[in-house]
Amino acid sequence: MTSSNFHRLLERALQGDKEAFGDFYEQMLERVYRYVFYRTGHIQDAEDLTETVFLKAWEALHRTGRVPDDPEAWIYRIAHNLVIDFYRTRKTSIPLDEAPLPVQESIAEREVLHKEDMERLVNALKQLPPTYQQVLVCRFIQGMSHRETAKIMETSEANVRVLQYRALRRLKQILNRQKE
C-alpha cells in the first residue's frame, strides 16, 4: 500500500466514508500494533491502544478537515503520543509473563529472540525516555529508514543518527545492569 493509496482512503474517510477508513486501518493495523506492543509489552494494552490510535486519527482527520501529508508518519505520531499518555495515566503494567507473547508461529525456524529475550528487551525499552524508545522501535524493530523515522519524530535525519546512538548506549547500560 503506497502513500497515495493511503491518501485516497483518507480523502474518502474525510467525506465520512467509514469503510475507507476501515481499509486504512487494516493496512496499518499490524505495523501500529507492533509499534505499540514494543512500547508497552502487553498484548491487551497494545490492542486497546492500537484501536484508540485509529479512533484518534478519525477525530483528528475531521477536526482538521484535511488529509495529512504523510499518513504513516501521522499515525505513528498519534501512536507515540498515546503511549506517552498511557504511561502518564497508568504507572503499573501487567508483566509480560501473564499473557502469551504474540509471536508468529513460523519464527521458530529463524534466528529470533526467545521469549526471555523479548521480555528483557521490552522491559529495558520501557526504562528509556520516550524519544529513545521511539527511535529504537522505529529504526530496529520496525526497520524504518532514517528519513521515515525523522518524519515520524519530526526531526532531521542527522538528529535521528545521533539519537539512535545515544539510545543504544543507554539501552546497553540498562541491559548490563539487568544482567548484574
Binding site: 499490524e30 529470533v112 526497520g143
Partner: peptide, 21 residues
C-alpha cells in the same frame, strides 16, 4: 545490540483481535 533488536520476532495481533478489529 542493534542487530539483536532487529532480530526481534514479528509480533502480530492475535487472530481473535484481528478478526473483530
Amino acid at each position: 545490540l542493534a542487530l539483536w533488536m532487529q532480530s526481534a520476532p514479528e509480533v502480530t495481533p492475535r487472530p481473535s483481535f484481528r478478526r473483530k478489529a
